[in-house]
Amino acid sequence: MGLEEKLPSGFLLTTVEQAAGWVRKSSVFPATFGLACCAIEMMTTGAGRYDLARFGMEVFRGSPRQADLMIVAGRVSQKMAPVLRQVYDQMPNPKWVISMGVCASSGGMFNNYAIVQGVDHVVPVDIYLPGCPPRPEMLMDSILKLHQKIQSSKLGVNAEEAAREAEEAALKALPTIELKGLLR
């Protein structure tokens, strides 16, 4: 992206990482991507009582070009999926996705012809937030967890290394059908 991508791995890069992470997490600009019931809870989170402004992110951007967080709030229909992907593609890097609510995460109770069974079929998801709809407190918790993730995100060669490791781990991971244990 910039000069930091060219830095050699080491003390300098990790320092820059920390500084960049701190700056990035302190001012995340979410895109308004309200779809259904969860969108109302998302608006509530931004309004008076829950006051998302405390975390430096009360400004929901109408334009994806000015946003770096997409909160997919609600069920994603087959008709909406291409639009969603286009909005995601229009967001500049670095960008994150919170899949808010069970419908966005897995299709939820709407296991049918119309709904995409999980928004991770369309875009990569950083945080899955359960609930139908999740309470504003839960949304804020997921946002704080995302802040931690942003804080510890890597840059340059470290980012490449992290991506490689993540991919290896994903390839080795058991599919859910082969997981064993109690169903709980």
Partner: peptide, 18 residues
């Protein structure tokens, strides 16, 4: 027209669509 649901798989168990 079928409902179009998919089976839910988790920990070796499979719950068919409604």
């Amino acid at each position: 027209y079928p409902l179009g649901g998919i089976a839910v798989e988790y920990k070796g168990a499979q719950i068919p669509a409604p």
